[in-house]
Design a protein around this nucleic acid. Structure first.
Lengths: 173, 173
DNA sequence: AGAATCATGTAAGGGGTTACATGATTCG
DNA sequence: CGAATCATGTAACCCCTTACATGATTCT
């Protein structure tokens, strides 16, 4: 799977329910995911062009009288496949978990796609493995500062695991 | 206070104990902070030049026979002041906490500077405030996905607060 | 009349990564 | 002898943010 920025998948996800023009995509994403991140309008238009160049999107240009023209985008089959593959894959980079994982959960529910509970379960498995690895490293680490860092990471992972097993598991169903 | 990237302060911090050339700075930082982040050598040299241009660093060029020449850097008074101000200020952007706060703690201990415990206490105060704000927002949020996001953030902050009050408080003394 | 919303873009710059380039010394 | 270490840089991208630019419509 190609590793594109999460914004790209968010755009693909917003087009899974039908064609939209840039401003509409922005509205949709801000309404649904505004609490997770901010989208810049200018960056969005840049990305849309780039994604079309990469074959993820198609576009048609609609000229309107008395209103500015709109460029309407839709997913290509490649774009759709790319989105669905991304959607069902848990995140293995811990730093991206917040953005990526919450965005995936959002689309599972928003698009009515089955398998959200499986994603949650797999994500739990991955985090547990990482946590165990860190715990082992901390136990054999004599240097206090490095122990402190491991402690920080382990504390973070513990909290996220509890959140996943508790709140996210319910949401993912 | 100017808001420079954390790498800049890490470099200033590594020069607080005396002049060093680029490669030495890299070694020092990787040894002490390698568990927190990675430094790219090429980026370091770019940064050093930029920082000198901004008046944070001075440099002298040492020509050596039979070895490559070295450019030896040291903090200017402005650089030192900038570092010390950064060091004693808690982080108010939650996403940067891991990098920034752990780096600050490292330098408190590494340079034998007093006030680490105060920084920990102030950081605890800030996170508690943020957490209370989020808890209030979640309580008045009807939308399940937004509640889930707030839950995630609150869980993260709770874990970090416990870590601060427990492990970091001891380390900061 | 002015502010907010609809609608789309360009340009500049910041900060980071990866790849590439060079060349000496020291260690196994 | 070859690999690791010492030592410094350039160039090309990537993604993001901010600022700037334009212009119509609708709401207050």
């Amino acid at each position: 799977m190609e590793d594109r920025p999460t914004t790209v998948y968010a755009i693909l996800g917003s087009l899974m329910s039908g064609p939209r023009h840039g401003y509409e995509i922005l509205r949709t994403l801000e309404e649904g995911l505004g609490a997770v991140w901010r989208f810049s309008a200018s960056q969005l238009y840049v990305l849309l062009k780039k994604m079309e160049g990469e074959g993820l999107l198609d576009s048609t240009f609609e000229v309107q009288e008395a209103r500015p023209s709109k460029r309407v985008y839709s997913n290509t089959p490649a774009g759709e496949a790319s989105f669905l593959e991304w959607l069902k894959t848990p995140t293995d980079h811990v730093r991206d978990l917040r953005f990526e994982f919450l965005t995936k959960l959002f689309f599972f529910r928003n698009l009515g796609i089955a398998g959200g509970d499986r994603l949650v379960a797999e994500q739990i498995g991955i985090l547990k493995e990482i946590k165990q690895g860190l715990a082992a490293k901390r136990d054999s680490e004599p240097e206090p500062f490095r122990r402190l860092i491991y402690g920080f990471r382990i504390a973070t992972l513990t909290a996220w695991l509890a959140w996943l097993e508790d709140e996210a598991a319910i949401f993912g169903k």
